Simulated scan of single mutants.
Amino acid sequence: MKKVTYLLIFSSLLFSCKKSEGNLNFDDSQSIEQKQKELSKYPTTVTFNKVLHDFGEIQQGEVVETEFIVKNTGKNDLYILDAFASCGCTVPEVSKEPLKSGESTPIKVKFDSNGKSGFIEKSVNIRCNTSRMLETVKIKANIKTNK
Rank of each mutant, 00 (worst) to 15 (best):
D28Q: 09
D77A: 13
I69V: 14
Q30Y: 10
I107D: 08
N129K: 13
K18Y: 09
N125V: 00
I80D: 07
G88H: 01
E65C: 00
I139A: 00
R132Q: 06
K35Y: 05
K122G: 00
R132G: 10
T5E: 00
L78R: 05
S11E: 02
G115D: 04
E135H: 09
S40H: 07
S101Q: 06
G22V: 03
V51A: 00
F10R: 10
S95F: 14
T66D: 03
D82A: 06
K35W: 07
C87V: 02
K18W: 12
D28E: 10
F111L: 13
E62Q: 15
S29M: 13
K35G: 04
V4G: 04
T5K: 06
I143V: 15
E135P: 03
A141Y: 08
V46G: 06
V91E: 01
F10V: 13
L24C: 14
C17I: 12
K3Y: 10
F119T: 05
V46T: 09
Q60Y: 05
N114C: 08
F15Q: 02
N72V: 09
E103V: 01
I107H: 12
V46R: 06
K144G: 05
D27P: 02
G102T: 03
E57A: 07
S29K: 14
F119E: 01
M1T: 04
D77C: 10
K19Q: 15
F111D: 00
L39E: 06
V124N: 02
G115V: 00
V70C: 02
S117F: 12
E121N: 11
C17Y: 12
Y42L: 08
E57L: 13
V91Y: 00
L81W: 04
S131T: 12
K2N: 02
L24M: 07
Q34G: 05
S117G: 05
S16G: 10
F48K: 02
N114Y: 13
T45S: 13
L24R: 04
V4Q: 13
S131K: 14
I80N: 02
T105S: 10
N76G: 11
S95W: 14
S40P: 08
K50R: 15
G118S: 09
L52A: 01
E93V: 12
K2Y: 02
I58W: 09
K19E: 15
F10M: 15
F55P: 03
T45R: 14
I107S: 07
P43L: 15
K2T: 00
S16T: 11
Q59Y: 14
S16L: 14
E103P: 05
Q60T: 06
A141M: 08
D77M: 15
S101P: 06
V4N: 07
T105I: 07
E65T: 04
E135A: 07
Q36G: 09
K138W: 02
P43D: 11
S104F: 02
D27Y: 02
T44E: 12
E62D: 12
D28S: 12
N25V: 14
E33R: 13
A83R: 08
E67W: 01
Q36W: 11
E57H: 13
N114G: 07
E65N: 04
K3S: 15
C87K: 02
F119G: 02
K3R: 06
N23C: 01
Q60I: 05
V64H: 05
E67L: 07
T105C: 01
N23H: 06
P43I: 15
P43F: 14
